[in-house]
Design a protein around this nucleic acid. Structure first.
Lengths: 356, 356
DNA sequence: CTGAAAGCGCTTACAG
DNA sequence: CTGAAAGCGCTTACAG
C-alpha cells in the first residue's frame, strides 16, 4: 500500500556521488566547512540544496556522540507559565541550531513519584541529548547527584535549588516581593497581607520571605494566608476571611488567585482599590480581564526561556572544548573566560486599577 | 575538569559480558523477548536492571530505522489550547512508549513563512521520527503533498483540512455552534450574534458556519462581528458597537474574548444575563474568573491530544505490518481491520451565570 | 534458542 | 585539501 509510493531520502553517498567527491568531503562541508576548498564546498552546497539532503540525525548522533538536541523536562505544560518558557527556549534553540526532546514529568501522578522521576532522569540522559533544561518548582538533591555524575550540561530554569554549583536562570522572587511590600509601606499602608498556596511551592515561599522581611524591617506584623490554587476552593476561603476583616493591601502569589480575591471582595462590597488594594504575580491575561484590572509584578517568562537556552548553549560549547583539552592533556587556562552560571532575569511592575 | 568524573554509560556489550551471552541475545531480550528462553531472559533482565542499562537511542534508531520517537509540530505553545493538547499527547506517548521531539513552528514570524515551513517539514521528517502530530489552525495543501510523499504516519490534531485521506482528530465546531445557536433560539431568543476574529482562523469559520446555518433555518438574520483577539483592541470595538445596540445573545468564539465582551457590556450598564446573554468557546479558567461567570462550550483539549496520540500509535503499528507484508510480497487482507482515521471528540456545554 | 557477522548513515583521525 | 577506512552502538537475517 504504502510501499509503492515510498521515496527513501537521500544519503550522504548520493550527495557525494552527484558531486563526484568522497563522502568524507561532504561530511566536512557539513561540519567543518573551513577545511574544504571554497570551489569544492560551493559545488557540494549547491547539490545539497538541490537534493534537499538532510543528514540522518541518528547516524550523526551515533558517529559524533553529539546530537545537537537538548532535552526540556517540564511538569505539565498547562501549569502556570511553563508554556511561555518553552516558547522562549524553542525560539532560541532554533536560532542556535538545536532540536528539542520534550519530557513531560507527570511522575507526581504516579504511585511512586521518586522511582518514576529517577527513571525519567535515566531516560533523559540515555536519550543522548547534549544538554538538559529542567523546569520545575524545585529539584530534589538526588537528581542533583545524577546531574553531577553524568556529563551532560544542565540549566535549571526557574527552578529553586540550594546548590549554586548547578547553573540556573530564574527571577529573584524574594526581592520582587520585598520591594513591592516596601513600596506599599512607603505609600502609607500598614495592614498588608500576603496570600500564598497551601501546597508548598518553593517559589511562593521565596515571595513570602521577601514580604516578611520588608514587614519586619518596618516593624509591621506580617500575615500569611494560605489557600488552594483552585478557584472554587479559594473563593470559599476568601469569603470566610473577608467577612471578618480585610487588609489595606493583599499581595497574591499568582494573578489568577488575585483575580478570585478581587471577585470575592467585590461581592462583599469592599471597594477596590479604595478600601482594598490587590497585587498579583505574573501578569497573564487574567490581569487584563479582571475588573478592576489587576496590578502585577510582571515576570518575563519567555525571556527566562531564552536566557536559559543561551546559557545552556554556552555550557555545551564549553564542555566540547573541555573535551578537546582533556584529550590533549593540556590544562586549559588562558582563554577560559568564566561563564556566569547563575542568572536572574529582571522583573517589572505593571500598575493597573487594583492599586492606587 | 569534567573528564575525571565522567562515567560513560553501560553498553549492550557490558550487559552481554556480565550475563555471559552474546550481545544479540541481549538485543532480543529488549526487542523480542518471546524469542529468548525464559531462564536466560530473566537473568539478562536482572543484569539490565542492576547496571541501569538503557540502549543508546541513536544506535537503535540507526540500526532499526525506528526511533520510537514522534514529532509534535505546534505553533506557539502559549496559543489558546495548544499546551493542553500537548499534555494529553505526552501522557499517552509515555504510556505507549514513545519519546517526543518538539518543533515550534514560529515560521509566521519569518520573512518568508512558506519557505520556513517547508524547511521545517524537511527537518521534521529527516529527524527520523516514526510519526508526526501536527497541530495548527489549518494546513496548507503543499504540506499535504509532502506528507503523502514521505512514509511517516501523520495525524492532524485539531487542525482543519479538506483532504479526508489524512487522519485527523478534532472537534465538530460547526455542529457545536449550530446546536448552541439552535438551543438559544428554542429558548425564545431572536437577536443572536456571533463574535469571531478578524484574523482568519478556519476553526472560527466553522463556528460561524454552524451559527449561520441554525439562524437561517429559523428564518433569523445572522450577524457576524469580527474583532481582534487582543483585549485592548477588541474592548474598543465592543464599546463602539454596544453603545449603539446589543443583541439578546452573543456567542463568542473564544472565552477570553467573551469575558472582554462581558466587561465592556457591564461598564455600559447592560445587565447580564437579563438583557444580554454571553456564551464562550473553550472553557478555560477565564470562564470561572469572569463576573458573572461565563457559560461555555467545553472543548476537551487534553482528550484530543490523547486520542490523537492513540490514533498515531495505531497507524505506526499498521505501517510496520504493511512493511512486513510488503517484503513478503503477500497482499495482506484478512486481519486488516480498518482503522478509523477521522475522529471527532465530544464536546459539552457548561452553563453558568452569563446565560439564563 | 543462541551466536557470528553484516549493516544502518554518518564522523574523524590518518595518510597522502 | 581530499580519500580510504575504522568505528559509533545497536538490530536482524542467517546459520547452527
Amino acid at each position: 500500500m504504502k510501499g509503492d509510493r515510498r521515496t527513501s531520502p537521500n544519503k550522504i553517498y548520493d550527495v557525494a556521488g552527484a558531486a563526484g567527491v568522497s563522502l568524507a568531503t561532504v561530511s566536512r562541508v557539513l561540519n567543518h566547512p573551513e577545511k574544504v576548498k571554497p570551489a569544492t564546498r560551493e559545488k557540494i552546497e549547491k547539490i545539497i540544496k538541490e537534493l534537499g539532503y538532510k543528514p540522518n540525525l541518528n547516524a550523526k548522533g551515533l558517529a559524533s556522540s553529539k546530537s545537537t538536541t537538548i532535552a526540556i523536562v517540564v511538569p505539565e505544560l498547562t501549569r502556570s507559565s511553563i508554556a511561555g518558557m518553552v516558547d522562549g527556549i524553542a525560539a532560541t534553540a532554533r536560532r542556535r541550531g538545536y532540536l528539542i526532546r520534550l519530557f513531560v514529568n507527570n511522575s507526581n501522578n504516579d504511585e511512586n513519584p521518586m522511582n518514576a522521576e529517577r527513571e525519567l532522569w535515566r531516560t533523559v540522559i540515555s536519550s543522548g541529548v547534549d544538554g538538559i533544561l529542567y523546569i520545575n518548582d524545585e529539584i530534589d538533591d538526588e537528581y542533583i547527584e545524577i546531574i553531577k555524575e553524568s556529563n551532560v550540561s544542565v540549566v535549571l530554569t526557574n527552578t529553586i535549588c540550594a546548590d549554586l554549583t548547578i547553573p540556573y536562570v530564574a527571577i529573584d522572587y524574594r526581592k520582587a516581593a520585598y520591594e513591592m511590600t516596601k513600596e506599599m509601606i512607603n505609600r502609607g499602608n500598614k495592614k498588608i497581607w500576603i496570600i500564598s498556596t497551601i501546597k508548598k511551592y518553593n517559589v511562593n515561599d521565596l515571595k513570602v520571605k521577601g514580604y516578611e522581611e520588608a514587614m519586619k524591617e518596618a516593624g509591621l506584623e506580617p500575615r500569611v494566608i494560605n489557600v488552594s490554587g483552585k478557584t472554587y476552593l479559594n473563593e470559599k476561603a476568601y469569603e470566610e476571611i473577608l467577612k471578618e476583616e480585610h487588609p489595606d493591601v493583599a499581595i497574591v502569589v499568582r494573578d489568577s488567585m488575585a483575580v478570585s480575591f478581587i471577585n470575592v471582595a467585590r461581592s462583599l462590597h469592599i471597594a477596590i482599590p479604595d478600601d482594598l488594594q490587590v497585587i498579583g504575580f505574573q501578569n497573564t491575561k487574567y490581569a487584563e480581564l479582571s475588573r478592576p484590572t489587576l496590578t502585577c509584578i510582571n515576570t518575563p517568562i519567555y525571556e527566562i526561556g531564552e536566557v536559559a537556552m543561551d546559557l545552556l548553549t554556552d555550557l555545551m560549547h564549553e564542555a566540547e572544548l573541555e573535551d578537546e583539552y582533556y584529550y590533549l592533556d593540556t590544562p586549559r587556562e588562558e582563554g577560559k573566560e568564566e561563564i556566569e552560571i547563575n542568572k536572574n532575569v529582571e522583573y517589572s511592575v505593571v500598575w493597573r486599577q487594583s492599586t492606587r
